[in-house]
Amino acid sequence: MARRPLEPRADRETFVVPLTVLPEHIDDNGHVNNVVYVGWLQDVGTAHWNARFDDATRARWSWVAVRHEIDYFRPLPPEAQGVLARTWVGDPQGPRFNRYVRIEDGEGRLCSQGLSEWVLVDAVTMRPHRIPATMLQVFQRT
């Protein structure tokens, strides 16, 4: 049974990424395959990070996904247009935080939602590092 729909937090920036449904995304059941959704969760989180932080910061830090959870509400068909992903972050817990993603069709209807748990790591050593407060501020709504 699917969970309640996720709603963006009022205190967090909601970052929006357009998604394109490609022919290779469609499975034997005639809709976007679940593996594509996992890729979208990762791509949307990465796009948000890349859009908000400079090259030097991205060279120093990296993110490792340790968990993905997806709920499906309605299928995205092959001809889906205007698909959007909306993402925001939760509260940091040491080196970890949850990232939330809603995927909506061209009519704004919720098709799926996901939660990914990410760990901040030093890009050279790959060791986990506590998320700095200054980093979280970038994701807050102004």
Rank of each mutant, 00 (worst) to 15 (best):
M1W: 07
R3V: 02
P5F: 05
P8E: 07
R9G: 11
A10L: 11
D11H: 13
D11C: 09
R12V: 06
T14W: 02
F15C: 04
F15Y: 15
V17G: 03
P18C: 01
L19K: 09
T20E: 15
L22S: 05
L22W: 12
L22H: 14
H25Y: 05
H25M: 10
G30V: 08
H31A: 07
V32D: 12
V32S: 07
N33C: 08
N34A: 13
N34C: 06
V35W: 02
Y37F: 06
V38S: 07
G39C: 11
D43K: 13
G45K: 04
G45F: 03
T46C: 03
T46F: 08
A47N: 10
H48L: 04
H48G: 02
W49G: 00
N50K: 00
D55L: 12
T57Y: 13
A59D: 14
W61Q: 05
W63V: 07
V64G: 05
V66H: 05
R67F: 02
H68C: 01
E69N: 01
Y72L: 13
F73I: 03
P75V: 12
G82D: 10
V83G: 07
T87M: 04
W88S: 02
V89D: 00
G94R: 01
G94V: 00
F97I: 03
F97T: 11
R99S: 00
Y100W: 03
V101H: 09
I103M: 14
G108I: 07
L110Y: 10
C111S: 12
S112R: 11
S116G: 15
E117N: 04
W118Y: 12
L120R: 13
V121E: 03
A123K: 09
P128A: 12
P128C: 06
H129Q: 15
H129K: 13
H129Y: 06
R130Q: 10
M135T: 13
M135G: 03
F139V: 04
R141H: 14
R141K: 14
T142R: 15
